[in-house]
């Protein structure tokens, strides 16, 4: 009996120390997450670009959307103004800290929306247009070392720490040498794959690295995906009044 107790104690000790050692192993992964977040933030400058979105839908066919993006990460602000198609022209999304507003020129009304919502009828979410928040929004559950194409990557399993992000579980493929996220898989609460994100092209703008091509594939609806190409990138200062409701209204006059 004593022998069994001793063996149990030893096993327990190994398990506990093993888990502790394993948890410690995640520190360098957490450091990677922080580097990913840091290199996606425009802390010292503003950012503007034109996003060309191709939305493929098995029912509606292929739709093109052109969006002008203004972004200021100091104060968590962005403005997305839809320029094409004509039917949606003038619609805008304004992020002011925690509040995201959607403006519809036909009703001339602002409606509260969320970063967790999808952008228009695409597979992108409003949160995809800001900086990354992997380090603060997720905790590491595990990781693997693997290759993706020619790149050596970490495949990191993440679990959301709270309800502020749309997907409770995420898996990211991060290059070992440059900390670039090449692929993401996002899962539901029931751990079913919902969306795959591919980021094949990046560009460096100052100290910031941003993906200039993004592909989001809806894994639940066959044949539904969205490609986003980023062009006309600028880090010139954007006037303060651009990040206001009045500006969106004025643009639509």
């Amino acid at each position: 009996m004593k022998k069994i107790q001793r063996i149990s104690a030893v096993v327990l000790f190994i398990l506990v120390t093993g888990f502790a050692a394993h948890a410690q192993d995640f520190s360098h992964i957490e450091a990677i997450l922080e580097r990913i977040d840091d290199q996606s933030r425009f802390d010292g400058s503003d950012f503007s670009a034109v996003l060309t979105m191709i939305v493929e839908d098995s029912e509606k066919g292929i739709e093109k959307m052109v969006v002008r993006q203004f972004r200021r990460d100091d104060g968590e602000r962005f403005l997305l103004l839809i320029q094409e198609p004509v039917t949606e022209k003038g619609q805008g999304y304004l992020l002011e800290g925690d509040n995201l507003w959607f403006y519809d020129p036909s009703s001339r009304q602002f409606a509260h929306t969320s970063l967790k919502e999808t952008f228009q009828d695409s597979d992108a979410r409003n949160a995809d247009f800001g900086s990354n928040t992997y380090a603060s929004s997720y905790e590491v559950e595990g990781y693997l070392e693997d290759t993706l194409g020619n790149f050596e990557v970490y495949i990191i399993d993440l679990k959301a720490v709270d309800d502020t992000v749309p997907f409770p579980y995420t898996k990211i493929w991060v290059t070992k040498d440059t900390d670039l996220v090449l692929k993401t898989e996002e899962y539901s609460l029931t751990y079913r794959l919902m969306r795959t994100g591919l980021f094949p092209k990046y560009t460096k703008v100052g100290d910031v690295v941003i993906p200039v091509q993004m592909i989001f594939v809806d894994e639940l609806v066959e044949g539904q995906k969205t490609q986003i190409a980023v062009s006309e990138i600028s880090v010139s200062a954007i006037p303060d009044h651009v990040f206001t409701k009045a500006y969106i209204e004025r643009v639509n006059r």
Partner: peptide, 15 residues
């Protein structure tokens, strides 16, 4: 069929 919804706190879920 699949049923895609948000939890009460806004997280994605599928059944």
């Amino acid at each position: 069929i699949l049923i895609r919804l948000e939890t009460l706190t806004g997280q994605q879920n599928v059944g």
